[in-house]
Design a protein around this nucleic acid. Structure first.
Lengths: 343, 343
DNA sequence: TTTAGCACTCGTCAAAGACGAGTGCTAAGA
DNA sequence: TCTTAGCACTCGTCTTTGACGAGTGCTAAA
């Protein structure tokens, strides 16, 4: 990408700023009036024509003003944009999330997603990491009544799984304790692979009557620790996009909403982004999925002890306020990482 | 409400059926043609005028056909409608919910709500009962590490609460066991009121070092068992209403969606309905909340051992397919009740 | 009591035209 | 060579107009 000269930079920035603000194609006179660059509208028109030739802006129709193209937004984000600080107001709200630190990780992420949606007018998304990288921390077997056993599995970092197992046979608390004690001793800090056949048969030897129960329990552990289930995608503020002027057309909006609602597309996109690190901006057609070609996606990954945990971000029209979105997303991801490191 | 004569019944039924199907005002000729009642359109026009006079139908404008009023729908539901059986297809899907029986009650209800939304083109809603009526079943304290203790509280029917407590002091597993054993022994099957000061001070005597921890734990129990938190309202298929032809106007739709999304209104309406028993149909202005005046709400309560547990239902335009909605909601509520009785 | 006939109402849709925002081009000035 | 005033031109938007038709209520005859 060739450098633009200073004047064209100014004009592109002006076009983008105004368009982000108004959602209307920006004409030469508007720029000449508002951003007094000491330049007439005619000159601006000439420069605009050049910018169009180079693909930074385009005209929706002949007699309209200019709108930034994906390439234009890209240049804007990479070169022209100054990322603002988050306001103290916002900072305060983000830090209030800590009140909920006592909940499981998943709820914290949901709450954070909600906050992002509330602070912006965009759709907030997050992947709650699958447990594939999780390690065993603790298992607890609680006899609920004669036939039902509550299995509580705690994995690192911070996930808690509850399942109820029904069994025709009754087991004594001691038997259950033996099973859980053994598992806790053997598996602590380990991954799913640690659940070997040897281990299993040894456990069966210790409590031979509980063969069936043991296999159910280890199934649960296995599935929680290693199964490649789909990442959980959290979406909040879906209806925010209804307030965006580009979604006045009901049919198109319905299409878009259904794409965002069913989550498959998002799951794919976010999962692939979670391999990146730091702050990422995907603009329009840069998105992997053609369904998102009218959207931009600002994401950041959050960590647990330096370990890539998941992705959180904002999805809006390409005409989004990149600066604010980027600063918020970054701040929130950093905050989450700090929070989880305390766990 | 006076009885209508047979012919008017037929005409009202025809108007309602056709209008529910097409969402277009129904003219006299349409009825004369489709439902050959052996009667001319002119006669039907006369009868329609009478029906209008009595308030069962109205004209959106002078030269339009007739549309059922709330009163008309009410008569239709009460007198004219035959409630169909659920199809075997639907029955099968409902019964597949049982596969998830092993999960906590809350998830089952969420899943059921989702199914209702998928089976219909309406918005599916449910109240997950607050725990106010819950009784204590079991508590388990799991030391996660030196400073964090996982509190697992199981209440009847079938709710499981997880909380993590951080404590500057370390406690031995034995101490934790003493606390939980005591609580389990004293509180089993009891309500929040059982958590008396006497009990608390006795517990403090048993493990005096854990005064702070004990008060955190009992706070949790207290809040889960008795605190008047808002009912959790589950909404699914919110976007289904976008497919309804009456919601083509984007502004109105946005308004409606925001009402349904924020849940306060729904919470109020559903909570008051949960006092009813059996199948309830609220039509248009019959709804407590003016925001729902264009909607009908079909709900049923579900039970646990004869005890009123919560409400589940469907929300659609007044022009909804009452028969199918009613049969589905009823079936689903019955199914849930049976399921929970097994717990 | 029913119904054919007819005048009347009124919403919808498409075509036509006014309007105006914005452009590109040209030519003159710095 | 760069800038800019001027101007003709384009084209989307909004409003007006009129044709169309679905549906009505009323009247009068069967």
């Amino acid at each position: 990408m060739r450098e633009l000269n200073e004047r064209r930079k100014c004009i592109l920035r002006a076009i983008t700023d105004v368009y982000i603000d108004t959602a209307e194609p920006v004409g030469s006179t508007t720029i000449a009036r508002k951003h007094n660059l000491g330049i007439s509208s005619a000159t601006i028109r000439n420069e605009m024509a050049s910018l169009e030739e180079e693909g930074y802006v385009y005209q929706p129709h002949t007699s309209a003003g200019r709108v930034p193209s994906d390439k234009g937004y890209r240049y804007y984000v990479d070169v022209l944009l100054e990322i603002p600080e988050v306001t103290s107001e916002e900072y305060k709200k983000i830090n209030q999330l800590a009140e909920y630190r006592k909940e499981a990780i998943e709820k914290t992420i949901r709450r954070t997603t909600k906050l992002l949606a509330e602070l912006t007018e965009y759709v907030s998304v997050a992947v709650i990491p699958e447990h594939r990288n999780a390690t065993f921390r603790h298992i607890q077997l609680v006899p609920l009544d004669v036939h039902n056993i509550l299995v509580i599995l705690v994995v690192d970092p911070g996930f808690i799984e509850n399942r109820v197992l029904s069994s025709p046979r009754a087991f004594s608390p001691e038997q259950l304790d033996e099973i859980s004690a053994y598992l806790n001793q053997q598996l602590r800090g380990k991954r799913g692979e640690a659940l070997t056949k040897t281990l299993l048969s040894e456990l069966n030897n210790i409590v031979p009557e509980a063969r069936g129960l043991i296999s159910s329990i280890t199934d649960i552990i296995q599935s929680v620790l290693t199964d490649a289930k789909d990442d959980v995608v959290v979406v909040d503020g879906l209806l925010n996009i209804l307030d965006q002027p580009e979604f006045q057309d009901l049919d198109r909006t319905k299409l878009v909403l259904s794409v965002l609602e069913n989550r498959k597309v998002l799951s794919k996109v976010l999962s692939s982004l979670s391999r990146n690190s730091g702050l990422t901006v995907q603009i329009g057609e840069e998105n992997e999925s053609p369904e998102l070609k009218d959207f931009s996606l600002v994401t950041a990954t959050y960590y647990h002890c330096g370990h890539n945990l998941g992705t959180i971000g904002l999805l809006g029209p390409t005409r989004m306020t990149y600066g604010r979105a980027m600063s918020l997303v970054k701040e929130v991801a950093m905050y989450l990482s700090e929070l989880f490191d305390l766990l």
